[in-house]
């Protein structure tokens, strides 16, 4: 227990978390601090490229084994299944309509790539290795949850919610293409390729992550300020409980697959995190009647800060205990 608290305390005073906290506080205090849209977009491209590339290099370095395919399969199954659990939990804990509950559930089956990036940064700082192919698992878990949510909604109505254009947009959204593309570049070029661009994608990584999380804090703080009114106690409790439930499923999958301690942590983080980029865009197209103020505030204003501050150290401690790592 002391180890968990110590890890959580160390995590809370890291530059990454404090940058996020600064953003939240600045937004809540109505400061005019802002990161220009193009800069934020550039930083997200940098982070996705760096994390994808490093994952690919790790796979090239350590070789491929059967766990890659099984991890991908486990991730896809989790992404399909977690929205069903979230939907059931929401119907029990909140008074959301079927439509809003399905839209929220989609977010909790999909993943937050920034939470994933923050977790890999914590693992690196702790000297804990993880499987490089977890980057591919992250990409694979983005979309299935959307299909689950649309299925949940279609059970209550006969309306057509999915078309080919939406499917293409979901599967080929910029984050997935960049993450997978960088992963394959890293895999193809290996450690020699990394050595060529190391000074660009390794050394500045944490600094860029700090600035990006400052921006995320600003967005989360604004979301809480403007959308906080829709947050009822049941919904708030869901925003904290669901990631813990998701992480338990991720823990089970990671242990079944025989992943390393770092790999188990990342599987837990992926299962615990909630999307706030790819899924909201898909929901606006497919379920425009669902309220963004609910699903965005929950995923970005409640679950994201929870995972960043308490969740990641908690998952790390549990994974270390479970794997003996």
């Amino acid at each position: 227990m002391d180890d968990i608290l110590s890890l959580a305390a160390n995590n809370l005073v890291s530059p990454i978390i404090l940058s996020f906290a600064l953003g939240v506080l600045a937004a809540l205090a109505r400061s005019d601090l802002s990161i220009p849209e193009a800069v934020a977009k550039g930083m997200s491209i940098y982070l996705l490229f760096a994390i994808g590339f490093k994952g690919g290099v790790s796979v090239a370095d350590h070789g491929i084994d059967g766990t890659l395919g099984l991890s991908l399969l486990a991730g896809i199954i989790l992404s399909f299944a977690l929205p069903l659990i979230a939907f059931g939990l929401l119907q029990f804990m909140s008074k959301l309509s079927r439509l809003d509950a399905a839209a929220v559930a989609a977010h909790y089956g999909s993943i937050s790539i920034v939470t994933f990036v923050a977790a890999t940064s914590v693992l690196e700082s702790s000297g804990i290795a993880s499987e490089g192919h977890m980057v591919a698992v992250a990409a694979a878990m983005e979309a299935p949850a959307i299909l689950s949510a649309l299925w949940l909604v279609s059970r209550g109505s006969s309306g057509q919610r999915m078309d080919n254009d939406l499917m293409r947009e979901i599967l080929l959204n910029g984050s997935i293409v960049l993450l997978i593309g960088a992963f394959f570049i890293g895999w193809a070029t290996g450690p020699a390729g990394l050595a060529e661009i190391e000074s660009f994608i390794v050394a500045p990584f944490k600094g860029v992550l700090c600035l990006f999380l400052l921006d995320m804090g600003l967005v989360a703080g604004r979301g809480l300020r403007e959308g906080g009114g829709v947050m009822r106690p049941g919904l708030l409790a869901f925003g904290v409980l669901m990631p813990v439930i998701g992480s338990v499923f991720g823990l089970g999958a990671g242990l079944l697959l025989g992943l390393s301690t770092g790999g188990v942590v990342l599987m837990m983080v992926l299962s615990a995190s909630a999307s706030y980029i790819a899924v909201p865009a898909a929901m606006r197209v497919a379920l425009p009647e669902a309220k963004p103020s609910i699903y965005l505030t929950l995923s970005l204003g409640v679950t994201f800060p929870f995972n960043l501050t308490i969740g990641i150290p908690l998952y790390l401690a549990v994974a270390q205990f479970a794997t003996g790592g």
Binding site: S34, D215, Y276, A278
Partner: peptide, 14 residues
């Protein structure tokens, strides 16, 4: 549907 701003958007969703 409420107020919104281009500033601070993390995706095109809003």
């Amino acid at each position: 549907s409420g107020g919104w701003s281009r500033e601070g958007q993390i995706s095109r969703a809003s």
